[in-house]
Design a protein around this nucleic acid. Structure first.
Length: 506
RNA sequence: GGGCCGUUAACUCAGUUGGUAGAGUAUCUGCCUUUUAAGCAGAGAGUCACUGGUUCGAGUCCAGUACGGCCUACCA
């Protein structure tokens, strides 16, 4: 019977209740009437399917017969082939799948009647011994079988699985149940983050947490999300970068700090951009941007070894080689050699504007020359930087927090790292002269367009901190999502973020 | 923000020139104790994304809206 209560309450508002769901509900209610708890508590921790494969995949039938151990497993029914008095099913736990053979004779008539009410998608527990079927598949012959949690919704089709990207992103739980590769991507993401934490911690970096809600937007240029604190009656911004807080900690005396957490930018969404994204920022006193190049090579090599088994692997059809040392090139060299811009034009504003306009890039005309360079770089060079490449010598006017180069004050001691046409990291020797930092901030505010989204406020407290003296240091930011894309061969940032931002369902 | 494409059963997809809505999987019933995209027989299942228009008649043609995808723009 259909639950009258359910209809009256208008339950299941996510979906018009389909026949399949109604039937499952009825079956569940039937089980409940037969005193089978649908969501029992106190299930003892099961053994892992992966362990069974690791040990017993190589066992022949005769060897398996001598294994007296009774295994206890739990997981989700992924497929089922029923006969009259027996059935085969595949059980999936977090580590893998194993076939289970349920015979009425073996589990008993009463248990088998209950088992007949089980569906694909249900979470169950089984105990039993291993054997091999006629076709040689390692299989557990069930002695007992019981319900762990009833599934009231059907799973997607067993053969084609789930393809609709909208469902995959919105209902990631379904995507994860159905797609092993997706489960592996997020496992790799976790491993990559662990490798980075391990690397930094073992080199005496301490992990810190600085404000995500900031009264003044700083550390990068981007539109922030705005919120309001009621009790303090003040506007706050979700951070676009933790940089200025982390450097306050260098002033405070920590010489190596890092933060690995979310930033928020109120900009467009694309295959490379999500409004909230994960950034690793680390700062090291008595180091320069050159030291950070080595660190970056070292960290990425560790990840490549552990995730890919070595420095050579492919990403979206490109064969990448992360063996150090990586290419190094100044921004000017890249523009001339890869962007094919004649060197003489690099200092000619009009020529650069013409080139940008020819590429359909919007130009206001009053930008700093460095801005023209980076725009041209983004259009002409970045997509061509497939192998890991450090681009150095960024103009001072586009690097307001970076230290000027000793040889030439028009440039900073800074690099950006590009791999597979993506910007992966940005690093520089830190500007620690409070007088110059104030001038750069003032300059930045003065030249800022009339973008009302970005409040033109000078962070006086940061200047005050620098005035106490910050040791010479270098810092780096690494976009974790893009890094994970690289090592999981993911074409879109949505494939490496569990719950990417989407419009609400209508 | 702009362009292109998509939206049909729970899932994967067909749907002819505009003429009563289709398949496979899944589900339900029956048979079936070594199957594995099990098999056999039968059954049920749809607001064709939504709104409007053209038409005797619209899943199909037109317009708009919503959501998604890809490209593009914005984005140190």
């Amino acid at each position: 019977m259909i639950s009258l209560k359910g209809i009256l309450k208008g339950e299941d508002s996510l979906d018009s209740e389909s026949l399949v769901i109604r039937q499952r509900r009825e079956k569940a209610e039937q089980l409940e009437r037969d005193n089978v708890p649908l969501y029992p508590n106190g299930i003892s921790r099961p053994e892992k399917i992966e362990m069974i494969h690791t040990i017993y995949d190589s066992y022949e039938e005769e060897a398996l017969k001598r294994v007296s151990h009774v295994f206890s497993l739990a997981g989700r029914i992924m497929t089922m082939r029923r006969f009259g008095k027996a059935a085969f099913l595949h059980l999936q736990d977090s580590t893998g799948q194993l076939q289970v053979y349920v015979q009425r004779e073996q589990v008993g008539a009463d248990a088998y009647i209950i088992f007949k009410k089980f569906d694909i998608g249900d979470l169950i527990k089984v105990t039993g011994r291993l054997f091999r079927t006629k076709t040689g598949e390692l299989t557990l012959l069930a002695d007992t079988i019981g319900l762990v949690a009833k599934s009231l919704r059907p799973l997607p089709e067993k053969y084609h699985g789930i393809r609709d990207k909208e469902i995959r992103y919105r209902q990631r739980y379904v995507d994860l149940i159905m797609n092993k590769e997706v489960r592996e991507v997020f496992r790799d993401r976790s491993r990559i983050i662990q490798i980075l934490r391990r690397y930094l911690s073992s080199r005496d970096f301490i992990e810190v947490e600085t404000p995500m809600m900031q009264p003044i937007v700083g550390g990068a240029t981007a539109r922030p999300f705005k919120t309001h604190h009621n009790a303090l009656d003040m506007d706050l911004y979700l951070r676009i970068a933790p940089e200025l807080y982390l450097k306050r900690l260098l002033v405070g005396g920590y010489e190596r700090v890092f933060e690995l957490n979310r930033n928020f930018r109120n900009e467009g969404i694309s295959v490379q951009h999500n409004p909230e994204f994960t950034m690793l920022e680390f700062y090291e006193a008595y180091a320069t941007y050159k030291d950070l190049m080595s660190r970056t090579e070292e960290m990425f090599s560790m990840i490549a070894d552990e995730i890919k088994g070595g420095p050579v692997f492919s990403y979206q059809g490109h064969v990448l080689n992360l063996s150090p040392p990586w290419y190094r090139m100044t921004l000017e060299e890249a523009l001339v050699e890869i962007g094919h811009i004649p060197e003489a034009e690099l200092s000619d504003r009009e020529c650069l504007i013409d080139r940008l306009r020819a590429l359909d890039a919007p130009v206001r005309g009053n930008e700093k020359i460095g801005k023209f360079w980076t725009r041209l770089f983004d259009l002409l060079v970045e997509p061509k930087l497939i192998q890991p490449t450090f681009i150095t010598r960024y103009p001072t006017d586009v690097s307001p927090l970076a230290r000027k180069s000793q040889e030439d004050s028009r440039f900073t001691d800074r690099f950006e790292l590009f791999i597979a046409g993506h910007e992966i990291a940005n690093a520089f020797s830190e500007l620690n002269d409070p007088r110059e930092q104030r001038r750069r901030f003032e300059e930045q505010i003065a030249s800022r367009g009339d973008d009302e989204e970005i409040p033109p406020v000078l962070d006086k407290d940061y200047i005050r901190a620098l005035e106490l003296g910050m040791p010479p240091a270098a810092g780096e930011g690494i976009g974790i999502d893009r890094l994970v894309m690289l090592f999981t061969d993911a074409p879109s940032i949505r494939d490496v973020i569990l719950f990417p931002q989407l419009r609400p369902e209508s």
